[in-house]
Amino acid sequence: MKSAPFEYLRADSIASACEALRREGDSAKIIAGGQSLVPIMAMRLVRPSLLVDINEIAALKFIAVERDAVRIGACTRQALVERDDALASRVPLLRQALAWVGHVQTRNRGTLGGSIVHADPCAELPLAAQVLGAKMVLRSSSGARTLAAEEFFTGPMVTATDSSECLEEVHWPVWSEPRTGCAFTEIANRHGDFAMVSAACQLALDGEGRCVRAAFGLGGVGQTPLAFPRLAARLLGTKLDEAVVKSVAQDAAAQTEPGSDLFATADYRRHLAGVLAARVIRAAQEKAGGGK
């Protein structure tokens, strides 16, 4: 349970981190909070020749609330994201998701960007990014590009990030509709573990309780976190009565491709997907001030 030998570089700027990645290529790896990377290095599933530490780069730690989006620096600690009230009032799904992420000690060190680039399909922050359509800004020594979540997550623990790129910031869209609500839930073996199945939803309602905007998704039941924009569109214009919510949730569950393991069969996970999808849609509706 000890990492294989590697060399270490404490980067003092994004430019110097990118330059090290360019020089070393595939064999270098960025370390942010290390809450996932250090265990997999200890298990020797990953053996980088160089670790580029971005923890001391102040420019990667910020939460900037703007009109249409909140920009969060990739190395911002999860605990700070969780505590930020201005952020919670504009992108409330993040605080809800973080309540399920690890424990106090891991959120104190773990970063928002680290969880997103690690891209575990069972992890909460990637699901929140997929559901809300967050945008990832990737920096390399030759420039920057921005990818939407749906292009960014490409497989289990795989993203479209090139080995020369460092995630710089994540843009979270702010919904301007006055009656917006969101919800996040999951089933895990123990609270704080990666989810067996997780579900997230954000909805906006009009004055009469009709759904005017909807997004929802499921984690742990596919190669990447899954969002269902076409199914969410079926909620629009409805008052989210039982029949429509149930049919949308069931259709989402039918589109999942869960695996089986020691803890749960694929059938059970698919069942959970349908139950939890319906539950978060209902909970988001209630948060938005609709329903009974």
Partner: peptide, 25 residues
């Protein structure tokens, strides 16, 4: 590997797991 919490220490006043950090950090 960051599951049990036995190695918790405070880093700059906040509890973290000392098995999930390298000393150099």
């Amino acid at each position: 590997h960051g599951i049990c919490g036995a190695c918790s220490i405070m880093l700059d006043g906040e509890p973290v797991r000392s098995c999930l950090m390298y000393a150099v950090q």
